[in-house]
């Protein structure tokens, strides 16, 4: 007997459970697939490592000074010391510039920075892409022509130009990157929405009297976000890579900040004198951080692709 679903005593919890059940099932299945892909696991391990560093930096390098993101000075060690020296496991720069300390607190800085840039960019991109794709017509044209402009300049160069006029500092790097990164998501989401809105279940929802907003957010968005999740995962790495480049070029973090690119910049001149560790370790950590997100993103692309899913 098929009981009329509306007759069931529907508490809020019950309704929520019913609505979420298929999503949770799919999520479980995704995680199952993820656990079978070796490269995704490798990426995940790297990311968990960085996440622990980012969440509990004080466990590994107790905060020193007023601002923990500034690498502390120590006048008793005027010259760079090699890795393994007393008090400097990864070596130091001049005046006790502790590479290990910078790497630990740099993990927190990079993680927070990437989450903020990617989060805001995804939000802007999703809203604009959804409106453009769903509405179509003049609004679509307008939004997409503006998006095209941002995508028609190589992103590193656009970021550099904006960061330059905003002046050096982490907050201008942040703004410069958000100004550039939203455009990619707008294009991806809009492309997906165009395809998804033709589905029969969208017409069905409309016929059942769903409002525009409900259709957009309940029916179209959940079926459109997969490619942009992959993109966002990859961009977490890209953002850190671009921030490091900005700092290396003297347009990002102030010198002395526990930011990996700024640390490489600090060490570049000392490499001539054979002090390789000042450049090697921060650069290696950037690479591992970015590699982690790339591995995971790659794995997720295969998993979320409906053609390869089952």
């Amino acid at each position: 007997m098929s009981a009329d679903i509306t007759e069931l005593p529907l508490t809020l919890r019950g309704r929520l459970k019913m609505a979420l059940a298929p999503r949770i099932r799919e999520l479980r299945f995704s995680l199952h697939l993820l656990s079978k892909s070796a490269s995704s696991i490798a990426g995940l391990v790297l990311l968990i490592f960085f996440l622990i560093l980012a969440l509990f930096p004080s466990l590994f390098a107790p905060a020193r000074g007023v601002d923990p993101y500034v690498i502390p000075f120590d006048a008793t060690h005027p010259f760079p010391e090699p890795p393994g020296s007393e008090g400097f496991p990864l070596g130091s720069g001049p005046y006790g510039y502790d590479i290990y300390y910078g790497i630990i607190w740099g993990a927190r800085l990079s993680m927070v920075f990437a989450i903020v840039v990617v989060g805001i960019s995804v939000l802007i991109g999703t809203i604009l892409g959804l409106i453009a794709g769903y509405r179509g017509g003049v609004i679509d044209e307008l939004i997409m022509r503006i998006t095209d402009v941002f995508l028609s300049i190589p992103f590193l160069i656009l970021v550099i130009a904006i960061a330059a006029v905003l002046g050096r500092g982490l907050d201008s790097s942040l703004k410069a990157m958000i100004v550039v990164f939203w455009s990619g998501y707008t294009r991806i989401i809009r492309g997906q929405v165009l395809a998804v809105r033709e589905n029969a279940y969208v017409d069905a929802a409309r016929a059942a009297g769903s409002g525009e907003l409900r259709i957009m957010f309940r029916h179209i968005l959940p079926n459109s976000w997969a490619p942009s999740i992959v993109q966002a995962t990859m961009d977490m790495g890209t953002v850190v890579l671009v921030l490091a480049a900005l700092s290396y070029l003297g347009l990002g973090a102030e010198p002395g900040t526990a930011e990996w690119g700024a640390m490489v910049q600090e060490g570049a001149d000392w490499m001539v004198a054979g002090k390789w560790w000042m450049v090697f370790f921060p650069g290696l950590v950037i690479s591992l951080f970015v590699l982690g997100f790339n591995l995971l993103g790659d794995g997720m692309r295969d998993i979320l692709d409906p053609k390869m899913r089952r």
Binding site: G237, L241, A244, A245, Y248, G261, V264, A268, M271, V272, G274, W276, V279, F280, G283, I286, S287, L288, V290, L291, N294, L295, D298
Partner: peptide, 22 residues
């Protein structure tokens, strides 16, 4: 290929310089 898209350009350049030049 994965390493290629993950390492910073400036770091690669500096490390190559260190190895070949210094």
């Amino acid at each position: 290929a994965l390493i290629g898209v993950s390492i910073p350009v400036f770091w690669l350049g500096l490390m190559l310089l260190y190895v070949f030049y210094y």
